[in-house]
Design a protein around this nucleic acid. Structure first.
Length: 555
RNA sequence: UGGGGUGUAGCCAAGUCGGUAAGGCACAGGACUUUGACUCCUGCAUUCCCUGGUUCGAGUCCAGGCACCCCAGCCA
């Protein structure tokens, strides 16, 4: 299915259209450049869909390139998980898997070239001194005393940096640009630093590592990237991106284009804060179904199709914005409604005894697997004298708008019979523990030959012919639209997870596998959790169905 | 009090040469319904941050304001 058919126009597409029309490019090449220092989240999905989507729509190519220039923070584990997540989202980089670390030799050569041109120098100021010399946002910086070393001396020093002759932090290579530039990024930025740690890919070959600004533009250029799309905070770095390429790389150069990163209501997106949630145990891990990580969304039951559709719908622009999480959930429901087989599950069981139904009798009733998709076929569901219905579907003293079961009232059991509540059984404390009812044998399948109507249809499950299950009800992790406002921990939703242990599901659920998705009729979309086993079924609530009745009650 | 950006409905967002404000979500009504779901109708910016100006005509052009975001890592 081509979900990109309805992709709205945006300023990046306009730029590409112009570049193609003017003949500047015949083919476009984009890239998704994650740093392997954490898990991908829905914000990354926006970038992935943008970059891979553009390549696909324009018959171009999109590279997956790991920006692995900081061995202190990066791990091999992340490289695998990131590839996994991108693939799961439905994108294919083909042959084009790259690592910035594969360019370390070339990068070193470009640095030497820069030194030869007199445009880079080895500086021996300490980190603190560099900061002091940089000046402030309103005051210019001042030149480093090492700024005017000879080319020969710089070449020698840089080589000795590479050879490990100096201590970490004692020397850096800096670009010689302008310490008085109004753009702080241009005040002789650091290009290389010494880090005597081994790299997850290059091992101990290097003890100097290039900085982002030096690496990224050149990696893009080496790969022939035409449009290098990044987020807004790199706008200040664009002059440096262009400056470096102008000094050492022949035309044509990639063009950096910045767009606004995704923010979602009731969600945090910063890696630092997500890590805090994981480490403090607020969530069970990076794949906790309440996390906005791709791994978390996957475990929650999200589909790649829904995420892609969402990314297409939110648009791409330069204004900082916060997208309503309701849109994500809308995209999810839309996809799940089309594709999920239906089943009945009773979350909070209330026993109903059908007094005029023969004891010991079991009959199998046919049910549609998906009314949205006749091809999905039908299944048989056992019906018997004792069944469970949802506690919420019965009220002793119902208000005017309550259509479900109540004393004396007749309702339909989905795919089964009409039943009428004839009596109510209480426990010692006066709680309703059982409903007594009668059924009308004429209404088998759910419709009355005499044409009489009922106002409600209830889901149900046979008491002795159903399976126990644990059901995990997830809700937003935060109860504040912007969880970043104030203390993160104080904005946590105390009800973000409710575990139901007495639920009952259809017998047909016997052989489900982790990841299988269903619609529990009248309730929501659920998927089988990785913790599930044939001995103990565990389901996650992916997202509830829209519930106008609940909405009416809130008023 | 430096520089770089952004401002169109509750939330996203389109708006090529200035020609009389797309679409989606949310919300509110209604129809349909063996899921109070889905689907389907209807409504939802006399106005585009503000103030002036140019023009027959301005969200689009010009001038001046205002608000918010980013930048002073040997992180990316």
């Amino acid at each position: 299915m081509d979900v990109n058919v309805n992709t709205p126009s945006n300023f990046i597409r306009n730029i590409i259209d112009e570049d193609l029309a003017s003949g500047k490019h015949k083919k476009i090449i984009t890239r998704f450049p994650p740093e392997p220092n954490g898990y991908l989240h829905i914000g990354h999905a926006k970038s992935i869909c943008l970059n891979f989507g553009l390549a696909k729509d324009y018959n171009g190519t999109c590279h997956l390139r790991f920006d692995d220039t900081n061995p202190e923070k990066e791990e091999v584990e992340y490289i695998e998980s990131i590839q996994n997540d991108v693939r799961w989202l439905g994108f294919d980089w083909g042959e084009h898997l790259y690592f910035a670390s594969d360019y370390f030799d070339q990068l070193y050569g470009f640095a030497v070239e820069l030194i030869k041109q007199g445009k880079a120098y080895v500086c021996e100021l300490t980190a603190e001194q560099i900061r002091e010399y940089r000046g402030t946002l309103t005051e210019p910086g001042k030149d480093s005393p090492y700024r005017n070393r000879s080319v020969e001396e710089n070449l020698d020093l840089f080589e000795r940096m590479k050879n490990g002759e100096f201590e970490e932090g004692s020397h850096v290579l800096r670009a010689k640009i302008d310490m008085a530039s109004p753009n702080v990024v241009m005040r002789d930025p650091v290009l290389y630093r010494i880090r005597k740690v081994s790299h997850h890919r290059t091992g101990d070959k290097w003890c100097i590592y290039p900085m982002y600004d030096f690496t990224h533009c050149l990696s893009d250029a080496i790969e022939g990237i035409t449009h290098s799309i990044c987020t807004l905070e790199f706008e200040n770095n664009r002059p440096l991106y262009e400056w470096i390429l102008e000094q050492v790389f022949p035309d044509p150069h990639p063009r950096q284009i910045e767009f606004a990163r995704l923010n979602l209501s009731y969600t945090v997106m910063s890696k630092r804060k997500l890590l805090r949630l994981v480490e403090s145990g607020v969530v069970s891990g990076w794949d906790d179904p309440r996390m906005p990580t791709i791994a978390g969304l996957r475990r929650r039951g999200y589909t790649p199709e829904a995420i892609r559709d969402f990314c297409d719908r939110i648009g791409v622009a330069k204004a900082n914005s916060v997208v309503d999480v309701a849109l994500l959930e809308h995209c999810l429901r839309e996809d799940l409604n089309r594709t999920s087989p239906r089943t009945m599950a009773v979350l909070r069981p209330l026993k109903v005894v059908i007094e005029n139904y023969p004891e010991g009798q079991v009959e199998y009733l046919e049910a549609m697997n998906n009314p949205q998709d006749p091809e999905a076929g039908t299944r048989l569901i056992p019906f018997a004298r004792e069944i469970f219905i949802e506690q919420d579907d019965f009220m002793l003293d119902p208000p005017k708008k309550f259509f479900r079961l109540a004393p004396g009232r007749e309702v339909r059991l989905r795919f089964a019979y009409f039943i009428t509540c004839t009596d109510v059984v209480y426990d010692d404390e006066g709680n309703v523990v059982e409903i007594r009812a009668t059924y009308d044998p004429e209404t088998k399948g759910g419709s009355a030959p005499d044409g009489r109507k009922v106002k409600a249809t209830l889901h149900w499950v046979a008491a002795d012919h159903s399976l126990p299950a644990e059901i995990r009800l997830y809700d937003h992790l935060f109860n504040k639209e912007d969880p970043n406002e104030g203390e993160l921990e104080e904005n946590l939703n105390p009800n973000s997870l409710e575990i139901l242990t007495d639920a009952r599901v259809e017998l047909n659920m016997k052989d489900v596998q982790p990841g299988d998705r269903f619609q529990f009729e009248r309730q929501g979309y659920y998927c089988v959790d990785v913790d599930s086993s044939p001995e103990k079924l565990v389901f996650n609530r992916t997202v509830p169905l829209r519930d106008t009745w609940a909405k009416m009650q809130d008023k």
